[in-house]
Design a binder for these strands. Structure first.
Lengths: 235, 235
DNA sequence: GAGTGGTCTAGACCACCAA
DNA sequence: TGGTGGTCTAGACCACTCG
């Protein structure tokens, strides 16, 4: 047989769930019952059930049994970085400015730092087909002793910039998408009208303890931005 | 011990990966080597490795070994439905109109149907704190014989509407977010200015074969919409 | 106390890969 | 050919749940 036994079993049970024969939060037969039904060892049944647990179709409760999950219909997976949100081909980023500044109230709040701490500002302009498309600004708390290397500031995405400060596995990123009219500064930079709306994609980078280690916004003229995602089976 | 052996092993290996001791695409010691090192059975090692495979830290190649994955830094999970994207509390949707229409060229293309087929149109107005916030329009191919039940048209989210036509597990949804100036129709409906931009959240529902079974847009005044997501460890 | 899932073992056979 | 991961078995002990 090409298809392993445990996969046949998990396919079978998955079908029963998707076709409604096992409804949400109802118990499945026990592992021992299933191993008799399918004439396989208990470990094989466990392997099959484990597949479905990983696929979020089932959850198990020790001492009770396995239950079908009510599926979430509102989960989407988006893949994007600073350059990906811009429409068009031949996208590139150009470093505009790097500076070390005293934080204002907003920065003190967002990065949760003391007012006497300094903050590194990295500004990029993003181009699509040689045309200006977006403006990106990032703030990172400045730690004396950790030099700002050229490698960091030339990168455009946050994980790359922060990579040599902490492990990429240890960070968490929160992202929000909204829309607004540009400030005078933004409209001047992007060479657009003050009543031309801009996409604002805001990112906050948190370390393992949930403390902010980066904050930034991408401003993009409304016609230059498109964001796409796909549904996934949820938690 | 409270912590099972396999979890200690997977924690150990995960730490080695996140701290860079095992770099991307490098092979791990074999299962047999690990079972000697940790003094456990091969099945326990496999359990530990399986955890990390499910967490996307590792992948395995039959006949070769286990390898650390290069992590993706650009994956985000978004949770939202038609009501969730609107800012504010006390959100509700009100059915505005249901109709069966002849499809125009756009609909024929988007739903991939023949021009003589009919299409069900469902229009909703969405309110936040009793104030009009968004306009939602959905198109579903009309199948004679399948009645449009009241249950369907009163729901606001696509999965709910389509639920009794097909299993929710069998559908896939593609979503795109963009921004534009409203048409006259949209600006009139939302009672906004024609030069006030709107968020457009477009959804396409596909069945298992990838054929469209639903298409819709949500139009939301730019100040009423906020979309948030969190990073996830990618594929 | 009987049944449940959670963990762990020791062994077996297979297909695949590389030298 | 020897090592790798992939599958599967039969049995064991545990903690948990529920009547």
């Amino acid at each position: 047989m090409a298809i392993p036994v445990y996969q046949k079993i998990s396919d079978d049970i998955r079908t029963q769930i998707t076709h409604g024969f096992i409804s949400a939060n109802n118990a499945l037969p026990s592992e021992n019952t299933l191993s008799s039904q399918y004439n396989v060892s208990r470990m094989t049944v466990r392997k099959a059930l484990n597949v479905l647990v990983n696929e979020k179709y089932l959850y198990s409760v020790p001492g009770k049994g396995y239950f079908a999950k009510k599926i979430a219909t509102d989960k989407y997976l988006f893949t994007f970085d600073e350059l990906e949100v811009i429409k068009g081909k031949n996208k590139e980023s150009r470093l505009m400015e790097v500076d070390i500044i005293k934080p204002n109230a907003e920065l003190i709040y967002q990065l949760n730092i003391s007012p006497d701490k300094r903050v590194v500002v990295i500004k990029h302009l993003l181009y699509s087909n040689k045309k200006l498309a977006a403006y990106d600004i990032k703030y990172i708390p400045y730690f004396t002793g950790i030099p700002i290397v050229e490698k960091e500031i030339n990168y455009i995405t946050f994980p790359e910039i922060i990579a040599n400060r902490t492990s990429m596995f240890d960070i968490h990123r929160k992202i929000s998408i909204r829309m607004d009219m540009p400030s005078n500064e933004i409209s001047t930079l992007l060479k657009i009208n003050t009543h031309d709306p801009v996409f604002i994609i805001e990112q906050k980078i948190l370390d393992q303890e949930g403390s902010p280690i980066g904050w930034g916004q991408l401003y993009c003229h409304y016609q230059n931005c498109l964001i796409e995602g796909d549904s996934v089976i949820g938690e």
